[in-house]
Amino acid sequence: MVSYKEIQASNALINDATAPRVAVFVGGTSGIGKLTVRALAATGASVRIYLVGRKSSEERMHAFIQELHAINPKAEVIWTEGEVALLAETKRVCEAIKSKESRVDLLFLTAGYAPFGIRRETAEGLEITQSLEYYSRMLFVLHLLPLLGKAEAPKVVSVLAGGMEWATIDLDDLDLKKPGNFGVVNARKHYAAMNTTTLEKLANDNPNVTFIHSCPGWVNTGNVRRGLDPNSIMGWFVWLILEPLIGLFSFSDEESGQRHLFQSTNAAFGGRGVLWKGKPGINSLEKPADGLFLVNYKCDCTPNAKVISLLREKALGKIWDHTQEVLRPYL
Rank of each mutant, 00 (worst) to 15 (best):
G247T: 01
G217L: 05
V77N: 05
E127P: 14
H260S: 04
L109Y: 04
G273M: 07
S57M: 11
S3W: 11
E243Q: 11
I49C: 14
L132S: 09
P73A: 09
Y135A: 04
Q263V: 14
N283K: 11
A114R: 08
E67C: 03
S214I: 02
A70R: 10
Y50D: 11
K178C: 06
G278I: 15
F116G: 03
R259K: 11
S30C: 01
L202M: 14
L275M: 11
L248C: 14
M234E: 07
K287E: 15
G163P: 03
A203T: 01
F249K: 09
V209E: 04
V185C: 06
T18E: 09
C215W: 08
P207Q: 05
D16W: 11
N208H: 08
F262S: 10
C301M: 06
E200I: 02
S250W: 12
E133W: 00
D253P: 12
F237V: 13
A161L: 12
K155M: 03
L261E: 02
K98D: 05
H260V: 08
L331V: 07
G270Q: 05
A42C: 10
L242A: 00
H260N: 10
L242C: 00
G31W: 13
P230C: 06
Q258R: 14
M1Y: 00
E81C: 15
K201N: 03
G28I: 08
A315I: 04
S136E: 03
E81K: 14
K318Y: 02
Q324S: 06
H322C: 02
P146G: 06
K306R: 08
N304V: 02
P20Y: 03
R328L: 10
E286R: 15
E95F: 07
R259F: 14
H143T: 02
A187Y: 05
V93G: 05
K178H: 06
E59W: 05
N186Q: 12
S264P: 06
M61V: 03
S284C: 13
R328P: 07
N186P: 14
K34E: 12
I169P: 13
G31L: 11
A70Q: 13
L311G: 10
A88N: 08
T302W: 04
A111T: 12
G27A: 12
L261H: 03
Q324C: 08
A315R: 10
L310K: 13
Q130M: 13
Q263W: 12
F182G: 15
Q130F: 08
E81Y: 03
W276C: 15
S284Y: 08
L245H: 07
L311H: 06
T198P: 00
V295A: 03
T129N: 12
S3C: 11
A70T: 11
E255P: 04
Y4V: 11
T265H: 05
T36G: 00
G44V: 09
N195T: 15
P179I: 10
D170C: 08
A39E: 05
S252C: 11
T302G: 05
S264Q: 13
R21D: 13
K178G: 06
L144C: 10
A85L: 14
R119G: 12
S158Y: 08
